[in-house]
Write a protein that binds this DNA or RNA. Structure first.
Lengths: 185, 185
DNA sequence: ACAAAGTTTCAGAAATTACTGAAAGTTTAT
DNA sequence: ATAAACTTTCAGTAATTTCTGAAACTTTGT
């Protein structure tokens, strides 16, 4: 596969950003290559285009599959495996977001729950526990909300994101709209 | 400073998670220590409690200040500098979110804008450009929306997050509420 | 002006993370 | 059942990131 200068720039950039997005350089590059390619891409083509070892390519593809960002595709008449994006850009972005939530928030929620069940030693720990509790509640809200957003589905999510300042106004009407829920705190 | 077992667990965990949250182990530990302490903490106390070098402590504190997560506080009658959290848990969470958006999304937006201005070489590049455009629009929506959410302020944001399934219902009413904006797509 | 009490910087060491390439494993066609 | 075509694994190496500690710097009280 011959990468045009434009594709090369994008692939390199996704590589650089990779580590900030939760995976490594190579994985970022492979993802960009697959997303930007019009045809399904074979593992060997990826290794050649990015000039990385076949082994590394295989591990990168495995990682991307575990994130559900790419999937294998059988090309009739071909023996080797080809790879394509696992969905639209929207779907991919959601997957990254969701996967990162799992990795970045869930373990902390678990720890905080455990610590809240522990018996505080001394007055100081009671104060600490209440702070941990506050962090826990915040993270739990974020988690619940992100699941809520997923449930909306892409169309409504899109509408919501495009609301702009309408969002604030809408919230002012909330009580009229959804009676029975008194505004908290 | 003597860390109770509870504080130790939390500090260690924040250290482990640190790298997933965009900073390193030490920085995560320092942050946890400062957040969980009732009193302002001196740099030397941090170094002692976490058993890290004074130099590393200084760099960690600098990093946390650049994220606006901790701030210095003058304690009357004391010469050394003390550190306290730069706000409530909510504020800190927002700062992390915002800072990460800057580091993880903004550079890509810039690159994508540049590539979209480049002249495509051949048919293939036109296809590529349209995909890059799609990614750009998505990231831009996310950025705009996250700024919108910030503008709401903590109280409304809290209300919004607590809406739960009410959010979906509310969006169904959107057109009645905010006439003049036809539903897109 | 000086010394004391503190902070910051940075070159090199240590620890961690990523990559290679060869060997082992798998699948498929005949 | 075998060989060809391909993929995966993993021990060792390379690259990157983080940490230390000593030297340089800053601030403040006398």
């Amino acid at each position: 596969m011959q990468m045009s200068p434009m594709v090369t720039s994008a692939v390199m950039h996704f590589g650089e950003m990779g580590s900030r997005w939760g995976f490594n350089r190579t994985v970022g590059q492979i993802l960009a290559l697959i997303v930007l390619s019009e045809k399904p891409v074979a593992a060997q083509e990826i290794a050649d285009a990015l000039n990385i070892s076949r082994g590394n390519t295989s591990m990168g593809l495995k990682e991307l599959q575990s994130w559900q960002l790419v999937k294998q595709q059988i090309v009739p008449g071909e023996r080797k495996e080809f790879f394509v994006p696992a969905g639209t850009i929207w779907v991919l972005a959601n997957r990254v977001f969701e996967e990162r939530r799992k990795r970045e928030i869930d373990p902390t929620l678990t720890l905080l729950r455990d610590l809240m069940l522990d018996t505080p030693i001394g007055e100081q720990d009671k104060e600490v526990q209440s702070k941990l509790n506050e962090i826990h509640d915040l993270l739990e809200s974020v988690t619940a909300w992100s699941q809520e957003l997923q449930n909306l589905g892409p169309e409504k999510l899109h509408t919501l994101m495009k609301l702009g300042s309408g969002l604030g106004r809408m919230l002012d009407f909330k009580d009229k709209l959804l009676p029975g829920k008194s505004s908290q705190q």
